[in-house]
Design a protein around this nucleic acid. Sequence first.
DNA 1: ACCTGAACACCGTTCAAGT
DNA 2: ACCTGAACACCGTTCAAGT
Lengths: 225, 225
Amino acid sequence: MAPRKNTDGLARDAIVDRALALADAEGIDAVTIRRLGQEFGVTAMALYWHVKNKEDLLDAMGDDLWAGLTVPPADPQRPWHESLRLVVAQLVDALRRHPGSLSLAYRRVLVSPAGLDVTEYALGLLVGAGFDLRQAADLATSALQTAIMLVSSEPGAELGVPEEDHAAHLERKRAGLLQLPAERYPNVRGAAEFMLNCADPDGYYESGVALYVEGARAMLQLATV
Amino acid sequence: MAPRKNTDGLARDAIVDRALALADAEGIDAVTIRRLGQEFGVTAMALYWHVKNKEDLLDAMGDDLWAGLTVPPADPQRPWHESLRLVVAQLVDALRRHPGSLSLAYRRVLVSPAGLDVTEYALGLLVGAGFDLRQAADLATSALQTAIMLVSSEPGAELGVPEEDHAAHLERKRAGLLQLPAERYPNVRGAAEFMLNCADPDGYYESGVALYVEGARAMLQLATV
DNA sequence: ACCTGAACACCGTTCAAGT
DNA sequence: ACCTGAACACCGTTCAAGT
């Protein structure tokens, strides 16, 4: 509810947008009140007119992240696990758009309007499938965390490391793995390339989401038997 | 490999221990070179003799976290999914001991000796079960991330929020949820208590781990059919 | 309504200097 | 070998003052 009438000067939305872009480009630590002021050609203190403090800015960034999510329309024809798969996939897509701000997503789920909408949708889905409310709550939380974890641990992502050091950082890790004794770490050595580099991101996300959904289906079997 | 001969003065291990304790008590942001010096009754610069820089300190904290993990001895009698369940449960236990340093765990898995050992063990398990190396790599990563996510999103945990503000913070969130319109958010309102407070942590972790393991079993079915 | 200057209490880090 | 003092370039934030 901060004022944002000034159209040619600073604007809250513009600040939040820039902060998100900055986080994606250089990591969340690069998002600094002073740095943002610099980017807008203005003193750091100017930002405090549009933003209560840094925490308020980070919250707003988290809310914007959630706002990018479109909940698929409910369709009673679709099996529940298929709908569940769709929401989690949507979630993944929304998060992939702002990898630098992933850490802000979790604490705003139950606060931001868009976050509440997805949560309500997911809970409804799970309760409709036969879970009780506590199980549904746990599973909905897991759905969100699954999406966050998939994006933040996409092989080769190395979030937080500035773009430029990226290649060198990976190379160092690769070198470390390849000099491990082959007798003791045969599997780590064999799987090294898969853990360091994601050749097929879409496939990676697809099977990550499937792992969750199939787990949920199995849990329903166990719960209702 | 930093020197640590001085037994009565500072010591690298003592610094890392203190840093971990500090992170658990007041959050990772409270871990500061200057603050640590203060705790040891020494100037901030003194720490630089025992620690290369802050990144080095954080890495060491991450390694200590992994060192707390004991890999269960391989037992060919046990079904693979049971062994998998045990490792992930061990992982969860290790992480729960240092909730403040969770964020450091991921980047040290493939570097710290203990992290490499678990990874090798998990990969061996999965390959033995019938997954190919790429699937095993993805699943092992997911196992780790599942453990991290379960701990970091234990309802009511509110990591990063200082101990004292904890209750107030939760109360504020609860109030926010309960004033939502009941027609539009029936499930969120109904599940609010479950999402804000973990009445049964052991049950929570058990079913969280089960969700992952059952997912993995289902994936094996899909892969080998 | 919107922005600046000066100031304060914090960071991490370097480097010469002490013992 | 181990620690300190002084200094530098950064933070977030407040508050009086400008337009």
